[in-house]
């Protein structure tokens, strides 16, 4: 078998929705070479070849694959987490076994925009993050040049839902 195991290494409640969990896992094989093939197979995946990472959804769940790890948010519970792991493992192994018949795709089909990120920021231009405006901060977030933690407002109770949404968008970009 190409990929033998995915070990869950971290599991925690989602920040905004305590009814859901997020988790991370380690892959027993480096699957970097397979990601462009999976990008072809999954029609709505977001592939970031610089990292590389591939993000896709399964209903409401957001799944990001890196070359040797996985991050998932909005899973229902532990059972759901392991069901996702099994599904992803099958996806990777099936894609690998069939890769001679698949044209790899290195493009990013769609990606979140700076405006989308900006919409969830406090929009008060406080400059505490080191940028002159929230829009500038959004652009840097999108390029992976700033860490979300630099915006301290987002980590207050008031902005919990916005933080969760930004984290989802960043996960789609492979940054989280």
């Amino acid at each position: 078998m190409y990929l033998d195991e995915i070990f869950i290494t971290y599991m925690q409640s989602c920040i905004a929705d305590s009814k859901k969990i997020r988790f991370k896992g380690k892959l027993s094989t480096d699957i970097g070479e397979v990601l462009p093939y999976i990008n072809r197979v999954i029609k709505n995946a977001i592939f970031n070849k610089n990292i590389p990472s591939l993000t896709f959804t399964k209903e409401f769940r957001i799944i990001t694959l890196y070359k040797d790890s996985i991050a998932v948010s909005k899973a229902i519970n532990e059972t759901d987490a392991y069901e996702i792991i099994d599904m992803v493992k099958d996806l990777i192994n099936n894609t690998y076994n069939n890769k001679d018949n698949i044209q790899p795709l290195y493009e990013m089909r769609t990606k979140p925009t700076a405006i989308e990120l900006y919409n969830h920021l406090p929009k008060i231009n406080c400059k505490r993050c080191g940028e002159s405006t929230c829009m500038a901060f959004a652009s840097k977030l999108l390029m992976g040049q700033k860490n979300i933690k630099k915006c301290s407002h987002l980590f207050t109770t008031e902005f919990k839902p916005q933080l969760e949404r930004i984290k989802d968008l960043l996960q789609m970009m492979g940054y989280f």
Binding site: I8, T9, Y10, M11, E78, T79, A81, Y82, E83
Partner: peptide
């Protein structure tokens, strides 16, 4: 299972899941 964020608790989760499966 279902009650810890450390590796061994996750192993217990995995064991329970595998049995369910």
């Amino acid at each position: 299972s279902g009650r810890g964020a450390y590796r061994k608790a996750l192993e217990a989760d995995r064991l329970v899941y595998k049995t369910r499966k």
